[in-house]
Design a protein around this nucleic acid. Sequence first.
DNA 1: TTTAATTCCGATTAAAATGATCTGGATTGT
DNA 2: ACAATCCAGATCATTTTAATCGGAATTAAA
Lengths: 139, 139
Amino acid sequence: MRISTTAHYASRLLANLATYDSDKPVPAAVLSDNTGISVKFIEKIIRPLKTAGFVRSVRGASGGHMLCIRPEQVTLGQVLRVMEGGVQPPQCCPDQSCGEHDCAARSAWNSVAQALEQTLESITLADLMRDNLDRYPCQ
Amino acid sequence: MRISTTAHYASRLLANLATYDSDKPVPAAVLSDNTGISVKFIEKIIRPLKTAGFVRSVRGASGGHMLCIRPEQVTLGQVLRVMEGGVQPPQCCPDQSCGEHDCAARSAWNSVAQALEQTLESITLADLMRDNLDRYPCQ
DNA sequence: TTTAATTCCGATTAAAATGATCTGGATTGT
DNA sequence: ACAATCCAGATCATTTTAATCGGAATTAAA
């Protein structure tokens, strides 16, 4: 079972963006240099983050992206919901036949999902920024 | 982000198997009837469970599968490790460049993985068996 | 001893999710 | 006007996941 990578990308991006002034647009090219993620891919993953209101962008020459929330206020859970609609527990039965019942298997896996969400809710962007970005470029 | 479905299948299978005498082989066809999972697919997902020592099988006519551990002794975490090698946190950097550093982003995601594993460790097969199987066939 | 029931195993296929790029349009400071 | 930049949708490529297939090996029972 893998922990989401797109949410991971998004959080790295946001954390990197957070190291800049929030009123001076940072071009995607710069974020790309910092993170190693291609400009095109950054453009893609930044879309939902804009829709969610985490990022604001200005177009045209000397445009770019700005974080418009404080890092301590964004949790990994929020990022994950924005990027992939949160944590999806498995369908219990192949044919959905258990949806109506009080099925122990289903509720067990639901509680796993819930616990995971809770953990994700306890970590903010600020937690991802503790290191020096020059020395530890992977944020 | 999706919660593992193969581990879910495996746990359903084991929980169903646990409702039978552990010294009388249950054919895959019966498990298939109970769970709605095809015989062939059951054969496949039961392989690693045998290797792990959770299940024992006898071949030939009137053969089948038997659970050879007690349901309270098998956690979802164990099942998941057997089926897919546990919880994999995301690679921090695309080029692995952060593997050596003390990277906050990496350790944050590692702690998510760890918390998830801990939750999985707290749920056993027995927890998946609380309901009546006739009324709630999806286990 | 034949037959039918069954597990076993590797290969293969099918479907879905993920990761990433492409192409071109729209906007805007210089 | 021009160059820098974001924007949006389509497309491609890769990997993962889900599931099936075909046939060999085993064994109880007829």
